[in-house]
Write a protein that binds this DNA or RNA. Structure first.
Length: 631
RNA sequence: GGCGGUGUAGCUCAGUUGGCUAGAGCAUACGGUUCAUACCCGUAGUGUCCUGGGUUCGAAUCCCAGUGCCGCCA
């Protein structure tokens, strides 16, 4: 299976250093990392590239505002990305910066080639430029207010001599390429968008600027610097030695897949291929444009406070759990939502309950009954079922991973996890253990389970690196994809270890994503006196109080409200003992709609002041008859 | 404004070329079990399959119109 002549080259976008990395940017890189790890496991000589995009007017201005030298400024910013990827254990083989010397040189050579080909010409550009988006607009694109149609910032009028790229010339060749390579751009709806643009025809684009100098100078006209997008795209070839290390370049180019966000799909699916055609290089095999993440249902933005540093999540939940969640819950290619609630559900249900518990119960039984992993012997029907499911899972796993269907790959692995739990239930090893004559059967059952766990740990290894390692170490086996399959577990001692994933107790757990809006929400909307009048508040005296069985918090109260007897259920059991409540006067909402809590009827609600964990019931200042109204 | 996608159980979604009483996971309720992280296993549900019309023996699935959400372009 190992064949190092197979190579695989995978890239992320290079990130514009001027904005902070958040969970959205981390998502692309994490996916690319999973793919790189998977391909390495499959025996490919893999090259995984990420990096930073550091030129452009926006960065130059930002540096100026801070009074910093531009290069020093981007050095600091790039470091933030390098550190983040280190913290997320991203396995990139190179981190490219567009300010790296070799990149600068390659870009100039690339540009020179295009020029010699006759695809670059000097023209006059007149129009409006948005510094923020690095985008040019023509008069007809914008309104009389001269604001950017995208970000609504003021535009700058520019009029200068620019070099242009004859992009229009490549409309037809690109269209042909799209038609003859149906998998060139994925998902398919993104490809269709690109085809539509091609059918309408491409226009030549301006590719140089003269009004500032933070960029790569044109080789043949030093007054100009190369448009930042042009410069950036070329990173994909400069990183693997274009014009500098032919052997390396030949080995890895063309790239197998460029992972990009949907907002930059055009650049990668149209402009970049046209540039490559111009210099006579083969096109990348695939561009995969994924969707955007929202966080807790809202767009990621600093003002909303949900632009969380991914490390905060990793620290709270663990890297493997966050990665599992991202790949399991968000269908790759579509937009998705990073929901902390759903993350916790996945951790508790899939990781702790299903996988963690399967491992823990299996390994515990092995060590309770045997010195080491027992030998299998005669197989029964249920064993064949497990074996069949394993082999189907392995097949599905390969085909899903090869087509970047991570969600499906994980679902299919987890079907195996769930069936393994059922297998334990059906074979009842704890009963087998009580009957010495069934020791052999017990050994077979436990061997099968360890064998499946071994397979699972290999399959999850590109995604959950630490978990996989921890699992395979506990059972003392090799993490080798060639060992995927039934009954390839070697004899070895095992170690039960701590539970892989502790459950998160949602009752006490504090979430880490603080939505800025939450605080605002706590300040409730103004109400009128009529609104308040709808609430019927009364004084009541507690006649009886008793805990509701099986509940820590809930207490059932029998009240006297002006001679009427009422039953309410209240959640103050952690703070008050029932005995201490009897005889006290409290305030209740008298006309609250009745409800049932833990099956016990509650006709009203007691008022209490809450300060974090502290809780005190409201009462009246001196004696008042029960049933008295409060207003 | 043009084009495209999407709208299925409380939640997240699956539903291949139209075909048996519409599915899964989570959550809920009840039962079983005890090796295990109050875990696992089983059972039970609930759905105007966005709305209205049409094609068909038969439509969540195809066609038309409307509507909500989303995307691309202008």
């Amino acid at each position: 299976m190992k064949d190092l002549s197979k190579t695989f080259y995978v890239t992320t976008p290079i990130y514009y250093v001027n904005s902070d990395p958040h969970i959205g940017s981390a998502y692309t890189t994490i996916v690319a990392d999973v793919v790189a790890r998977y391909k390495r496991m499959m025996g490919y000589d893999t090259f995984f590239l990420t990096g930073t995009d550091e030129h452009g007017q926006k960065i130059m201005r930002a540096a100026k505002e801070k009074g910093m030298d531009t290069k020093k400024f981007v050095d600091d910013l790039a470091q933030r990305f390098i550190q983040l990827w280190k913290d997320l254990e991203i396995s990139n083989d190179l981190f490219i910066r567009t300010t790296d010397d070799y990149h600068v040189k390659t870009v100039q050579e690339f540009f020179q080639k295009m020029y010699e080909k006759g695809d670059i010409y000097l023209g006059k550009y007149e129009g409006w430029y948005c510094v923020h988006d690095e985008t040019f607009w023509t008069e007809k694109d914008i309104g009389p207010d001269k604001l950017c149609p995208v970000c609504h910032r003021p535009l700058e009028h520019v009029e200068e001599e620019n070099y242009f790229f004859r992009l229009s010339k490549y409309t037809k060749p690109l269209l042909d390429h799209f038609r003859s390579h149906p998998d060139f751009v994925e998902p398919d709806f993104r490809r269709n968008e690109m085809i539509k643009i091609l059918e309408e025809g491409l226009e030549d684009i301006s590719v140089s600027r003269t009004s500032f100098d933070w960029g790569i100078p044109l080789p043949f006209d030093k007054k100009h610097v190369i448009y930042v997008w042009f410069d950036a795209l070329i990173n994909y070839v400069s990183a693997v030695g274009y014009g500098r290390d032919d052997e390396k370049f030949k080995k890895y180019w063309p790239a197998d897949v460029h992972f990009v966000g949907k907002e930059i799909n055009r650049f990668h699916s149209l402009i970049w291929p046209a540039m490559l055609m111009s210099v006579g290089l083969p096109l990348p095999k695939k561009i995969f444009a994924h969707g955007w993440l929202t966080v807790n249902g809202e767009k990621i933005s600093k003002s909303k406070g949900n632009a969380v540093d991914p490390r905060v999540l990793v620290k709270a939940y663990g890297l493997d759990a966050v990665k599992y969640y991202l790949l399991r819950d968000i269908t790759f290619g579509n937009d998705g939502d990073f929901s902390e609630d759903n993350l916790i559900v996945r951790i508790n249900a899939d990781l702790a309950n299903d996988l963690g518990n399967l491992v823990h119960r299996t390994l515990s039984m092995v060590n309770q009954n045997f010195e080491e992993i027992p030998d299998p012997s005669k197989e029964e029907k249920i064993d064949d079922d497990l074996k069949d499911l394993l082999s189907r899972t392995i097949n599905d796993y390969f085909s899903y991973m090869d087509s970047f269907k991570f969600t499906e790959a994980l679902i299919s692995i987890w079907n195996l996890v769930k069936f393994s739990n059922k297998y334990i239930d059906m074979t009842e090893p704890w009963l087998l253990a009580r009957d010495p004559s069934k020791k052999e059967r017990l050994g077979t059952v436990l061997y099968n389970l360890v064998d499946v766990i071994r397979n699972i740990s290999i399959m999850i290894s590109p995604i959950m690196v630490k978990t996989s390692k921890s699992l395979i170490d506990r059972i003392n086996q090799d993490l080798d994809v060639n060992m995927l399959g039934w009954h390839k577990t070697e004899k070895a001692k095992i170690e039960v270890g701590e539970p892989l994933f502790p459950r998160i107790d949602t009752k006490v757990w504090k979430k880490v994503i603080k939505m800025a809006e939450t605080e605002e929400n706590q300040k409730k909307a103004e109400i009128s006196i009529e609104d308040f009048a709808k609430i019927d508040l009364r004084v009541a005296r507690i006649k009886k109080a008793e805990r509701i069985p099986k509940s820590e918090k809930l207490v059932k109260l029998i009240l006297d409200v002006g001679g009427e007897e009422r039953q309410i259920v209240t959640g103050i059991g952690l703070v008050y003992t029932p005995e201490s409540l009897i005889g006290r006067e409290i305030i209740i909402i008298y006309n609250l709609k009745p409800t049932k809590l833990m099956g016990v009827e509650s006709n009203g609600m007691l008022l209490a002041a809450k300060d974090g964990e502290k809780l005190r019931i409201l009462t009246v200042d001196g004696f008042v008859e029960t049933g008295a109204k409060i207003s």
